[in-house]
Simulated scan of single mutants.
Amino acid sequence: MKLLDQLGITYPIIQAPMAGGATTPELIAAVSDFGGLGSLGAGMTAPAALNSQIDMIKTLTERPFMVNLMVLSDQDASTFDTSMPDWLTQYYREHHIKAALPDRPAQSFAEQLQVLYENPVSVVSFTFGIVSIEQVQRLQQLGTCVIGTANHPLEAQAWAEIGADAVCLQGMEAGGHRGGWLPESEADPLGLLTLIGQTRACTDIPLIASGGIMTGQGIRAIQASGAQLAQLGTAFLTTDESGINDIYKQALLDTSLGNRSTETRLTRLFSGKQARGLVNEYLLDFAVFDKKDELPPYPQLNAMTSPMRANAAKNEDAEHLSLWAGQGVTQVRQERAITLLERLVQEL
């Protein structure tokens, strides 16, 4: 069965599950109702809130939608075992920002996953790690399709071996956090078409492609290379239904208007894990510290920089926000999600 039919969608378009409030129920429902696959980025969402959001989406659409979780161990999600970097402490002191840390750096993955056992959805995807074969089978027994995320062919193979229904290949062009977990995926980041080709040569698991795709022509290109569906993130960030704040949204739009540098960069400075975003003052000012061995790991650094990002949002300061964006960012438009979707389908 083709992946399009297995997921119950009409068009080969998945709206990427971007955590942090970007993927509102309204955006998800708009994409799913159109015939694509809307997705909830729930990796940073408390279990009770996740359950409520799933219920809300189910009231807005009867079509399939996806929920995405970040795979974290209990130890990683619950423990601060590194100190805040001196340069970040100094930044908070100089800018009079109270840098109080939460009790734990991230939500409990086990508790989030339990929500999906008790309140099943059509599709679940995972990023930042891999689950067990038992967890895959339990979800599938509930009627849920399971999708893994990979930045390297070895990661895609690992998902195939535990029985995942598909793998989303995330090329180095993609905005936001890289979803892989093996050292190989960090050492030599692969472009999307190269990643598709190398993965296709070692496994026949159905593939979804993500990274820099902004047009129907881009979707056709990845299909010609061996992927069945395309997952688009940055293109949806500037739609009316997107939940990102106006400062972030305007920074993205400014790249398309020639009012801001279009340079993006893979960085660990915001969270401790590689992620691609627009270059701003924060990335430039602290670039010397952007080294894996010198930074607290994810999710600890992510929690440590949260007060800075919250203060930046409050003060409408795009230069200290994490402006996640893929390399296709100059093609964003301010429009309704359905307008974007109609254009993509017309271009197919």
Rank of each mutant, 00 (worst) to 15 (best):
Q228L: 09
Q75K: 11
I130L: 07
Q331A: 02
V121C: 03
N311E: 04
F270C: 01
T89C: 10
Q331S: 05
T330C: 14
T23Y: 00
A312M: 06
M214R: 08
Q107A: 14
A287L: 06
T149L: 06
I133Q: 11
V31M: 08
T239L: 10
L266A: 04
Q170C: 01
V71L: 10
G218V: 04
T127N: 14
A46L: 14
R138E: 15
A100V: 02
L284M: 08
Q331P: 11
G226S: 06
V146Y: 09
A221C: 05
G326C: 02
G8E: 13
R265L: 05
A224T: 03
V288K: 05
K98A: 12
I196D: 06
L50K: 05
A100T: 08
F126E: 14
G272M: 07
G216P: 03
G218W: 03
I219A: 02
T79V: 13
Q334C: 12
A287M: 03
S73R: 12
E241Q: 10
F34Y: 15
T45S: 03
V345M: 08
V288F: 05
D76Y: 11
P105H: 00
L252T: 14
V31K: 07
A221G: 04
A313F: 00
G175N: 05
I133V: 11
F270S: 06
P307I: 01
S125F: 09
G129M: 05
F128P: 00
E94V: 03
E241F: 01
I130G: 03
R178W: 04
L190R: 07
L278Y: 13
A77G: 13
W87V: 03
A42D: 15
S306E: 04
G171C: 13
L283D: 05
Q274V: 10
Q135P: 08
L182V: 03
S306V: 01
Q112I: 14
A209G: 02
L69A: 11
Q90W: 11
A150S: 10
E342T: 10
G212C: 01
E134C: 04
M1A: 12
A325H: 02
S210F: 04
E111L: 14
D55P: 12
P183R: 03
S225Y: 13
G129W: 02
D240T: 10
L116W: 11
P296I: 01
L340Y: 13
A77F: 09
K291D: 00
L182M: 01
P105E: 00
D240P: 00
L27N: 05
G148T: 02
T234L: 04
A287I: 08
L323W: 12
M70V: 11
K249R: 01
N315W: 06
T194D: 07
V71K: 06
R93M: 06
D254F: 00
M1F: 13
L207M: 12
G243R: 00
H320N: 14
P85I: 11
V31G: 07
A318R: 03
Q228A: 13
G277A: 03
L113I: 06
F109S: 13
Q53H: 07
L252V: 15
T215Y: 00
R178M: 11
G8M: 13
M304D: 06
E173W: 04
T330L: 09
S242Q: 06
L344G: 04
R343F: 15
A19H: 14
F128D: 01
G129H: 12
T255D: 01
S125V: 12
T24V: 02
L340D: 07
S322G: 02
R178Y: 01
T267Q: 04
Y11I: 05
Q114I: 04
L142W: 14
A166W: 13
L142K: 15
